[in-house]
Design a protein around this nucleic acid. Sequence first.
DNA 1: AAGTGGTCTAGACCACGTC
DNA 2: ACGTGGTCTAGACCACTTG
Lengths: 253, 253
Amino acid sequence: MQQSPLAPLTKKTLSDIARESLSRYIGQMLNAGQTKLPSEVELARILSVSRTTIRRALTDLEGKGTIMRIHGKGTFINPNLNQMKLDLYTGHDYYQLIRKSGFEPGVKVLSRVVQEASPLQRSDLGLKEDDQILALNKVYYADEKPCLLCINYFPQTLYDWDTLSDEVLEAFPFELIQEYAGIRCVRDSTEITTAGGNEVMAYTMGEDLLQCDSLLILDSIYYDNNNTPVFLSKTYFNTDYIKFTMIRAIEQI
Amino acid sequence: MQQSPLAPLTKKTLSDIARESLSRYIGQMLNAGQTKLPSEVELARILSVSRTTIRRALTDLEGKGTIMRIHGKGTFINPNLNQMKLDLYTGHDYYQLIRKSGFEPGVKVLSRVVQEASPLQRSDLGLKEDDQILALNKVYYADEKPCLLCINYFPQTLYDWDTLSDEVLEAFPFELIQEYAGIRCVRDSTEITTAGGNEVMAYTMGEDLLQCDSLLILDSIYYDNNNTPVFLSKTYFNTDYIKFTMIRAIEQI
DNA sequence: AAGTGGTCTAGACCACGTC
DNA sequence: ACGTGGTCTAGACCACTTG
């Protein structure tokens, strides 16, 4: 069932390459104390691509909060860039999240339990009654202090999870799913709620791992490219360590 | 100082119109039990626009979670559309937010206080020492139960706020700022954190208005089109009433 | 092979800001 | 008047899915 461990099939578009090139350029500009980027036509000429491609790259960077475009004036580096640490939209990779927040990341598998799927989980995953799921509890550390708790719910039928060691299960769930079940997840649907700090104790054998009075919760359903639900995840963030930031355009009426 | 109350300057692009038309069409499809949209070239032909314009409209709808596109197969209505109530990216209008959550919205001004700006507020707003701000506390109701608390911080110099009644101040801060200060805000920078339920009591005269053990906090800085900070807002959400949802694409490595 | 969405191009025109 | 970003077009080719 295992796929080839080779080649995660990197396939970059021209605008991806342009975006990365622009990112590097912006880093140099910051060091040089500059704030205004060349015009779009100028960038297109320099990089030898069409203006459309440049605009796509710039739109991506704008969405990430790296730059700001002002109609009639130009494109500028976001002056608050240093404060813009994490955006929700690329918040899947907890290791990067913790590192970008300025801490040294770590992870440990707390427990793995095969259990009956709840009615809501059955509905989310399209399971039948009596179907079982593997609940995988992981805690992530920032500078060796627990900062987030993540629970993944995999359908038991996806793979024979017992054969995998804790070390393997510490990887990202996407990678596990792709590597061992041969399924590639391409999107998720995530709900944002909160909870009191004591809610996670049930998952940590009564131990108050995340010592804070409130938690940010992201509840996600992950889908493959056929829009079939693959697995669930529920993550509790201590927002003392992990602060998400975003740039929002205000819709004019 | 007051601007003309006429004409909020609606200016729709072709893709905006196409998006709205598609939205209505999708509503009809849902009633008819259909899930697959016509192809992009077909839609472009029907609406007499270029495929680029259609794709822009579809990309907007995809970002809002209305539709899902599958390469090689087609464009489909998101089967979970009914559950996708609120997205963070259009979360400025609390009245709509509450209504979309299935409640009847209401609002009340709790208090308005002129006070010294804190060092952080001065930094965010580019104020000088000793500059004062107006702190405007508002509570929003869902079916007459308090569900969110919003505090706006306006620089005192923007307008003579004392001349405005509580009823006027119940409007959206953008509208206030545009109407009375003649400034149009075009974007914000927002940080997401959480707090225990008792944190808001300081703003509500000791009364526990939002009765819950944890709160979602959005801290925003609003900017005009010159990227100048205009005002701040801090909003506490009771996530029992207001649940945000989002669709995220997973970056392939 | 046919149909679908994804990317890219070259060029046009518009709207906004500055001089 | 000029430079900038914003929108739109028509057409080409590519990548994925299905028959």
